[in-house]
Amino acid sequence: MTQPRSPWPAAWGTRTAVMGVINLTPDSFSDGGRFNTPELALRQASRQLSDGADVLDLGAQSTRPGAEEVGAVEEISRLLPSLTAIRSAYPQSLISVDTFLAPVAEAALEAGADWINDVSGGRRDPGMFPLIAAAGCPYVLMHSRGDSKTMDAMTDYHDVVSDVLQSLQEASNRAAAIGVARNQLIWDPGLGFAKTTTQNLVLLQELERLVAVGVPLLLGPSRKRFIGDVLNEKRAKARIWGTAAVCCRAAAAGVGVLRVHDVAPIRQLVQMSSAILPIR
């Protein structure tokens, strides 16, 4: 008899988990169009699981700066064929779906997704928190402002770490008032979303303040623009070593999950980090 899968990575609490990014879109900033058929997505899922991914994160709506929003119907049509193919091939894998729309999240959960990863932290769709409460699933609540068109103009903070913490806590309180349990939540400070390069670096320098709250933390630095700014590297795929440096810092701070494109090297990084870092 097949054992039911746990909604949490097997490594939870023993090392930083690795979440593999699979973009099912034609226009994502780093790999748009590479995995936007079920066959290509399944092949990438197989590769990432073999490379040691603890969670797969499927996204059918690009959230890069300036991206056009396609709406729930199109997002679902992009998502479900790949999601069902991966779930069928890997019934015990953990699958997260990256969406800020409740109808997409509902369809994903019905099709076998385990987590919902919401870049809007519940801001964009009032139906999201009731759905997550009813489902009882893990929910990545990310800090962001505005949307893909407006977020780059919304970087005014008094203290970026304090302001992000306050926003995450307020969103969590709203979610709790609707019935989302505290142990469903994973916080994401939203690197690259309504933050300047300097603000992203400050968040990374002060990660311990975020980790200290006690809510598991997810970080998504992979190939992002602020890394390119620091390294003067315009090619997203050439930012792997900058990404690795951020991931090493995150593992040292006790971040729970790293969301990355390059699973194999980052899995090696966190595995080695867990062997040499002091026990927290």
Rank of each mutant, 00 (worst) to 15 (best):
S144D: 10
D163L: 06
D163W: 04
D159G: 13
I178L: 13
D159A: 14
V160R: 04
D147Q: 02
S148L: 04
L141C: 10
D147C: 02
I178C: 11
D159Q: 12
V161W: 03
R145W: 07
Q166L: 14
L141I: 06
D156S: 10
M151S: 00
V164S: 03
A177H: 12
E170D: 14
A177W: 10
D156C: 10
D156W: 09
A177V: 07
R174I: 10
S148G: 03
S148D: 05
G146K: 00
Q166T: 13
L141Y: 05
Q166W: 13
L168S: 05
R145N: 06
R145D: 12
I178M: 12
H158K: 11
H143P: 03
V160Q: 05
L165S: 09
H158G: 13
N173Y: 10
L165I: 11
S144T: 07
A153T: 09
S144P: 05
N173D: 15
S167A: 15
A175F: 02
R174C: 15
M151F: 01
S162F: 05
T155D: 04
A176Q: 05
I178E: 08
T150A: 02
D163M: 09
A171F: 07
H158P: 04
K149W: 09
S162V: 08
S144I: 02
G146A: 05
N173K: 15
S167W: 09
R174E: 08
V160Y: 02
E170M: 09
S148A: 12
L141D: 02
S172I: 07
D163C: 08
M142A: 08
S162E: 12
V164E: 00
S162R: 15
D163A: 10
H143Y: 07
D147L: 01
D163S: 05
E170K: 15
I178F: 08
A153F: 08
R145H: 04
S167D: 09
T150L: 00
S144C: 11
S162D: 15
I178A: 13
Y157K: 08
G146Y: 00
K149G: 11
L141Q: 04
S162I: 07
D159E: 10
L168R: 09
S162Y: 05
I178N: 08
E170V: 00
R174S: 14
V161C: 06
S167Q: 12
A177G: 14
A171L: 14
D159R: 14
L168Q: 04
S148H: 03
T155Q: 05
A176G: 11
V160H: 03
L168N: 04
Q169E: 14
H158M: 10
A176L: 09
D159S: 14
D159I: 10
D159Y: 15
A153N: 07
A177L: 14
N173G: 15
A171N: 11
A175Y: 02
S167K: 13
S144Q: 07
M154D: 04
R174T: 10
M151H: 01
H143E: 07
Q169A: 15
D152Q: 13
Q166K: 11
Y157I: 05
M154S: 06
A175N: 01
